[in-house]
Design a protein around this nucleic acid. Structure first.
Lengths: 185, 185
DNA sequence: GTCTATATTCCGATAGAC
DNA sequence: GTCTATCGGAATATAGAC
């Protein structure tokens, strides 16, 4: 991994663990053994680093989509939800949730890149649901896009909320999402 | 309103607009025309102010519960969801969502008070759903507590997510929550 | 590319006068 | 209760040597 990639990975960890405004170049410096001035060589400003972190997520997301290309809608949805299981197990939150709550404090470059990412996620889940309904694998009454909003908000927020209620609530909600789509099972 | 109350109200606004780590005593100082040293007289530390802000929300929540005591489950649920309509119209997020994403960076005093608040909210929505099912006003398959988790996560996260997708998505999700509970309508 | 050194600004918090 | 003044520390960012 290049230094640039290591910086992005560390920033990603810190943003989703502590929030954008709570992490500093010094944190990264301490973690990976490089001076803050050197981080500025790779990313002139903190916003540049923020944008690069979102772009990294977009790339990983596109890769995941490709991996599931020929799988069933149920497998795809489980693949999507598993991203959040990983996040939960690391006691983090997702990038969209972390930055959305800080949205009024970040530069437009970050805001716009995050909008791109959120749109990609919403589109994919909408596609999965459309395909699943067509194959009679999923049942739901709303439009696929609305159902995608319901599912994404469920999983995005239970990562946050189960920090306060009970950790098991994450799996309870994850399973309820699937069960709701497959009442015939 | 006392100075103390004005400080809490301003802190509440700033926490939900910008996040706990992005707001400062200087922000409050500028907004209400009092020096930061005077804020420290009322709240020795920033954490003390954070805790007081959550306690204020708990009080307001208990008051709202009382107001809806003799209303129908549907009216109660609409009352609950309307809190978020207000939040959305102010371009803020809810206190639980804002602090949950910053949870790893705040002191235990804040963490514990926020857990109390989240538990209260979850209990009330669970009660509303239990009552609504008993009266055959609501239909759902899971336990009332699980359904409460689904609804709370929907509304908590669509406030955040609709900042990135489309503002109208908030109302779409809010209406879908009600429609899902009342498929016979 | 990475370093040292530093500029500038802001933060939470405290002491003590009024 | 509110003020002035200040401390100690941390933040983002830059200049320039290596």
């Amino acid at each position: 991994m290049t230094t640039r990639e290591t910086i992005i990975d560390t920033a990603d960890h810190l943003i989703r663990s502590n929030g954008f405004n709570a992490f500093s170049f010094k944190d990264i410096s301490n973690k990976i053994g490089i001076k803050t001035a050197s981080i500025h060589y790779h990313f002139p400003t903190k916003s540049d680093l923020g944008v690069a972190t979102i772009k990294e997520h977009i790339e990983r997301f596109e890769y995941l989509k490709k991996e599931f290309e020929n799988k069933s809608p149920l497998q795809k949805l489980n693949g999507f939800l598993s991203i959040y299981s990983q996040i939960k197990s690391e006691n983090k939150v997702c990038l969209v949730g972390s930055l959305a709550t800080d949205l009024n404090t970040v530069e437009d470059s970050i805001k716009n890149e995050l909008k791109n990412f959120a749109e990609l996620v919403l589109l994919w889940v909408t596609e999965i649901l459309t395909e699943g309904k067509k194959q009679k694998m999923f049942e739901f009454q709303t439009t696929p896009r609305t159902k995608a909003l319901m599912i994404i908000t469920n999983i995005l927020a239970i990562v946050q909320l189960s920090r306060l209620t009970q950790a098991e609530d994450f799996d309870i909600v994850k399973e309820a999402i699937i069960k709701d789509l497959r009442p015939h099972i």
